[in-house]
């Protein structure tokens, strides 16, 4: 009986295995990002106002749609990692629950890095398309050229949001494993909360979205994600597999 099978070495082996196994996720990501890019070409916000002599049509362009799509994509990615099928795949080979979670989280973090970089940079593809395809005299140069620090900040923030969303998806997946009814209960609970106390949701949303200090924001997201991920681990700790 060998003793050199510590948690981290197994988890990292699982991580590499899962990274390869889930590499096909890149197709769905590219698909939805390109789709979002097409949507973005018509602008994310538009406004027009008219006076006697002047009619102004303003369209705003950004990678917001691309980023939002990527958010939802990561939610489903993390949800999928908790499915029975992927559990079975884990328990076909060497694993325990914790190493399975650790490798899943590792995979999610890698996916998040990829997703946050690609979604943030996709905005430049949008700009290049606009540069060549649109009447340039109508385009505001302001914000066209990349500013490295802004890009970096954008990528990090996107990644942090994705981490939080992934942790929520993961928790939902675990809850569904505990009882299928959670598919309905999860949104119902949110909806009920909204009805009972509309401020709650807005407050928790603002807790993240209105934080203007990058450091505080990062701390809030990282702590919350950690809590949610550990909750997932705890909840699934006693669960039987491959019944």
């Amino acid at each position: 009986m060998s003793l050199n099978n510590n948690l981290l070495s197994i988890a990292s082996r699982q991580y590499v295995y899962k990274l390869k196994a889930n590499s096909s996720g890149v197709y769905s990501l590219i698909f939805i990002q390109v789709l979002a890019l097409l949507f973005s070409l018509s602008g994310i916000q538009s406004m027009s106002s008219v006076s006697e002599t002047l009619r102004v049509n303003v369209k705003y362009f950004s990678a917001d749609i691309i980023i939002s799509f990527t958010f939802i994509w990561i939610f489903f990615m993390s949800l999928r990692l908790t499915s029975i099928n992927s559990k079975t795949m884990d328990f076909t080979l060497v694993t325990n629950r914790l190493s399975s979670h650790l490798s899943n989280i590792g995979l999610l973090l890698t996916t998040i890095i990829f997703g946050s970089i690609s979604s943030s940079l996709m905005g430049f593809v949008l700009k290049i398309i606009m540069y060549f395809a649109f009447d340039r005299s109508q385009i505001g140069v302001n914000g066209f050229y990349p500013v490295f620090s802004d890009i970096l900040l954008g990528i990090i923030t996107t990644g942090l949001y994705m981490t939080l969303i992934a942790s929520m998806g993961y928790l939902l997946g675990i809850l569904i494993q505990i009882h299928v009814l959670f598919v309905v209960l999860y949104p119902a609970a949110l909806f009920g909360l909204e009805k009972v106390n509309p401020q709650m949701l807005k407050l928790s949303f603002d807790f993240f979205a209105s934080e203007t200090s990058p450091l505080l924001f990062a701390i809030r997201i990282i702590l919350s994600s950690l809590i949610v991920f550990s909750l997932s681990c705890l909840l699934s700790n006693r669960m039987e597999v491959r019944k």
Binding site: S2, K18, S24, M89
Partner: peptide, 15 residues
């Protein structure tokens, strides 16, 4: 790590 369990429900990634 010291067990392998072979049955016909073993699952491997489609990739």
């Amino acid at each position: 790590a010291n067990i392998i369990f072979i049955d016909n429900h073993m699952a491997f990634p489609t990739a």
